[in-house]
Amino acid sequence: MDSWCYVVEFGRHPETGRRRQKSKSGFETKVEAERRLPKCFTSLIRIHILNRQKRI
Rank of each mutant, 00 (worst) to 15 (best):
Glu9Tyr: 12
Pro14Gly: 04
Gln53Ser: 03
Ile49Met: 11
Tyr6Glu: 05
Glu28Val: 02
Leu37Ser: 07
Leu44Met: 07
Tyr6Thr: 01
Glu34His: 04
Ser23Trp: 15
Lys39Phe: 02
Glu28Ser: 09
Val7Gln: 10
Arg52His: 11
Arg36His: 12
Arg55Phe: 04
Asp2Arg: 10
Gly17Gln: 15
Trp4Lys: 04
Lys54Arg: 15
Tyr6Ala: 10
Gly17Trp: 06
Gln53Lys: 12
Arg52Leu: 08
Gln21Arg: 12
Glu28Leu: 13
Gln21Leu: 15
Arg12Cys: 15
Ile47Gln: 13
Ile47Lys: 09
Arg18Phe: 11
Val7Leu: 08
Arg20Ile: 12
Lys22Cys: 15
Glu32Leu: 12
Val31Ala: 11
Arg52Trp: 03
Thr16Ile: 13
Gln53His: 03
Arg55His: 07
Arg55Glu: 15
Glu28Pro: 03
Leu37Phe: 07
Glu9Val: 06
Val7Cys: 09
Leu44Arg: 01
Arg46Glu: 06
Ser43Met: 15
Cys40Lys: 01
Arg35Trp: 02
Lys54Trp: 04
Pro14Ser: 09
Gly17Lys: 12
Val8Cys: 02
Thr42Asp: 02
Arg36Ala: 15
Gln21Trp: 04
Ile45Ser: 03
Thr42His: 03
Lys24Met: 07
Ser25Cys: 08
Arg12Trp: 02
Trp4His: 04
Ile47Arg: 10
Lys22Phe: 10
Phe10Leu: 05
Cys5Arg: 12
Gly26Ser: 06
Gly11Cys: 07
Ala33Asp: 02
Leu50Gly: 03
Cys40Ile: 00
Phe10Pro: 00
Lys22Ala: 12
Ile47Ser: 08
Glu32Asp: 14
Glu9Ala: 06
Cys5Gly: 14
Glu28Ala: 15
Val7Gly: 05
Lys39Glu: 14
His48Gly: 09
Gly17Ser: 11
Ala33Gln: 02
Cys40Met: 07
Ile49Glu: 08
Val31Trp: 09
Ile45Asn: 01
Pro38Phe: 01
Ser23Thr: 13
Glu28Asn: 13
Cys40Trp: 02
Lys24Gly: 03
Val31Ser: 08
Arg36Gln: 14
Thr16Tyr: 05
Thr29Trp: 01
Trp4Met: 11
Glu28Thr: 11
Val7Glu: 14
Lys54Leu: 03
Ile56Cys: 05
Tyr6Pro: 02
Trp4Cys: 09
Phe10Gln: 00
Glu15Leu: 13
Val7His: 02
Ser3Val: 03
Leu50Pro: 00
Cys5Met: 13
Ser23Glu: 13
Phe10Lys: 00
Arg20Leu: 15
Leu37Lys: 09
Trp4Glu: 07
Ile45Gln: 10
Thr16Ser: 08
Phe27Met: 13
Ile45Lys: 04
Ala33Lys: 01
Glu15Ile: 15
